[in-house]
Computed example of a mutant assay.
Amino acid sequence: MSSFAVPVPDPAAHAAAVERLDGLVKPLGSLGRLEELAAWLSAAHGVVPPRPLDDVRVVVFAGDHGVSAQSAYPREVTAAMVRVFLAGRSGVTVLAAQVGASVRVADLAVDWDASDVPDEVTSHKIRRGSGAIDVEDALAAGEAQAAFEAGRTIAAEESGADVLIPGDMGIGNTTVCAAMVAASLGLPAAEVVGAGTGVSGGALARKTAVVATALGRAAGRSTDPFERLTALGSACLAATAGFLVEAAMRQIPVVLDGIFSATAALVARDIAPGAERWWLAGHRSTEPAQAFALKALGLTPILDLGLRLGEGSGAVQAIPTLRAARAIIAEMGLLADLA
């Protein structure tokens, strides 16, 4: 039984939003998904029209993985990219600036000497790197719970936001996510493994074999979400799950990014059923595992741009669409007011 009593988005606000949208100066339902999003935001904010989406915050959860050898890039890139985030030169920091969103980095398990980075980056660190899931558990006993609680704390620290976006950075992320989605939904490795950072041919076959081996090693441990995280996940994935649950508890709308946040959302939903009502899928990833995860969560991506960068970059691109959805319900005229 879940210990989380997740609030429900305001049904009265949703109904009032639908009524107003139907009365706007346009044919009924003619603005399609924008109308659905406007009603969703109204319910999430508990008011019609919803609040302006002025305070948008991205939190990038970073960590290294023992299966990073399957990637097209070396493990050291994770630490190097954290420094790029801090310098404001990463993909998500550049794209976030275009929509006025802030970007924060949280090191949960990067394998590096971080003595020269701000304490706020490493204040929730759990360990340096995760285990290679094909031969050992990703986390030690108790670390999944500790990382989950760290994610909850991070969400609490960002509780003033109008929208939260979980980002990710970690070489090997897609391998871990493929294993977690497969274990969560009972799927074979071959159906969930994708190209990730760009592997193909023999490298893709080896990645699939690693995921299949990991699933076999962890067989029987997938029913409990924390056991699943311990066997196949990572500290950064567990922290993202905690972040998503706490955001829902605090009634803060979340826009999911790609495969990493969708995988964390599957786990978070198992820990706190109903939390998924506070999440939107920002974009469709090229990773096959994301499609399975979103279908299980009942979420439809807002955008489909062929993105696979991660970092929160795709979710950031959905913010202008959400602002447009808010604008129609806040600023369009009513048919009843026509002369």
Rank of each mutant, 00 (worst) to 15 (best):
V6M: 06
V8N: 04
E19D: 14
R20P: 00
L21E: 02
L28D: 07
A39F: 05
H45W: 11
P49S: 07
R51E: 10
R51N: 09
V60P: 01
F61G: 00
D64Q: 12
G66C: 15
S68L: 06
S68N: 09
A69W: 15
E76M: 06
T78E: 01
R83Y: 02
R83S: 01
V84C: 05
F85W: 05
V103K: 02
V105K: 10
D119M: 13
G129E: 10
V135I: 11
E143Q: 15
E149P: 04
G151F: 12
T153D: 10
I154H: 06
I165F: 05
A178P: 03
A182N: 01
S184T: 09
L185T: 08
A189P: 11
A190T: 11
G202C: 04
T208C: 05
V211E: 06
R217F: 12
A218V: 14
A219L: 05
G220S: 14
E227H: 13
G233K: 09
G242V: 09
L244S: 10
M249G: 07
M249Y: 05
M249Q: 13
R250Y: 01
D257V: 00
A268Q: 04
D270R: 12
R277Q: 09
W279Y: 11
T286P: 00
E287Y: 00
A293P: 04
L303M: 11
L309T: 06
S313P: 08
S313W: 02
L322T: 07
L322R: 02
R326T: 04
R326C: 03
I328E: 03
L334V: 12
